[in-house]
């Protein structure tokens, strides 16, 4: 980005509004904090909770450091395998966020492609794609994902497939709608008549116009996916037990919560909330700004 475009961007209305919008600033700080944690966190915590050889069974179920019986080596305590809760959270957040982001990108790619194909091509292809979308929408996504996972079995790549298969619909619908609208425009009719290839029309004229709603949907979807993944893992049909995400950490803690060992499940839950809250703050701001109609 050249200096002048940067200046122009900084002077834009978006940036101006952003600076005046406290929730948006808080949201981005939270998201930045998480970006930092997942990038550098593993280097900062003492233990790699996935390396089973590093775990010390004898250190299991230690309470947080500030409580009686706590061990300063484990700030937030340990779980039943002697895993440091803080380290588990750092690694778990990486997995949760990785799943959220990757599944969002995959859904976005698939949904946008199908939406453009449906809108641009029309006819039977449009009918088939949109029927599938309709059927899918008649089910809550958690239920569909739960069912898919129960058939697949646990695994990160399987969670990604399950989330993508419920996530694409919203893009497909949005993009198809915009595509249909754009297709009617005179300049596109003109471009088609002049023999401009379809992919060029799509790339130059249609994609830029559907970009803003996609950004809004995508931001919020990351948060939704993090929550759905947590629910699946909580039910035992999400990520494998050796690579626990935040949701699986909560599940592991659930079994012993009633015996008073609250720290194993409470901290990961707080982290999920903070993460999704930050994403939602940003998403709200983007929606209000990029989609003034919804304001």
């Amino acid at each position: 980005m050249s200096a002048s475009t940067l200046d122009r961007f900084l002077a834009s209305e978006l940036v101006h509004n952003y600076r005046r919008n406290l929730p948006a600033v808080i949201g981005s700080l939270i998201v930045l904090g998480f970006a930092f944690t997942v990038t550098f966190g593993p280097g900062l915590v003492a233990q790699d909770p996935y390396d089973i050889a590093q775990l010390e069974l004898m250190d299991s179920f230690k309470p947080p450091a500030w409580l009686e019986g706590g061990d300063p080596a484990y700030w937030l305590g340990t779980d039943g395998q002697g895993r440091d809760v803080l380290a588990s959270i750092v690694y778990g957040t990486r997995i949760s966020l990785f799943i959220g982001l990757t599944a969002m990108l995959a859904s976005c790619l698939l949904g946008t492609t199908l939406g453009i194909v449906a809108g641009f091509h029309g006819g039977w292809l449009d009918a088939v794609i949109m029927r599938i979308a309709d059927i899918q929408l008649s089910f809550p996504s958690v239920l569909t994902a739960l069912f898919l996972m129960s058939a697949f079995g646990t695994g990160i790549e399987k969670v990604l497939i399950a989330l993508t298969s419920v996530g694409w619909v919203v893009y497909a619908r949005t993009v198809r709608g915009s595509t249909l609208r754009e297709k009617q425009r005179e300049y596109i009719q003109a471009a088609r008549v002049s023999g401009l290839p379809n992919w060029k029309i799509i790339l130059r004229h249609i994609l830029p116009n559907v970009l803003t709603p996609i950004i809004v949907v995508a931001t919020i979807q990351v948060g939704t996916f993090v929550l759905i993944e947590a629910s699946l893992s909580f039910l035992g049909v999400g990520v494998p037990i050796t690579k626990p995400s935040l949701g699986l950490l909560i599940k592991n803690g659930f079994d012993v919560l009633f015996s008073g060992l609250w720290w194993i499940s409470v901290f990961p839950g707080l982290v999920i909330m903070l993460l999704v809250f930050g994403i939602n703050l940003l998403g709200d701001f983007l929606r209000d700004e990029l989609n003034p109609r919804l304001k």
């Binding site: 909580f234 909560i250 999920i272 993460l275």
Partner: peptide
């Protein structure tokens, strides 16, 4: 905050 909470965790 309500939207961001995992419901099952709230239950716990």
């Amino acid at each position: 905050v309500g939207i961001s909470l995992p419901g099952f965790w709230v239950g716990m």
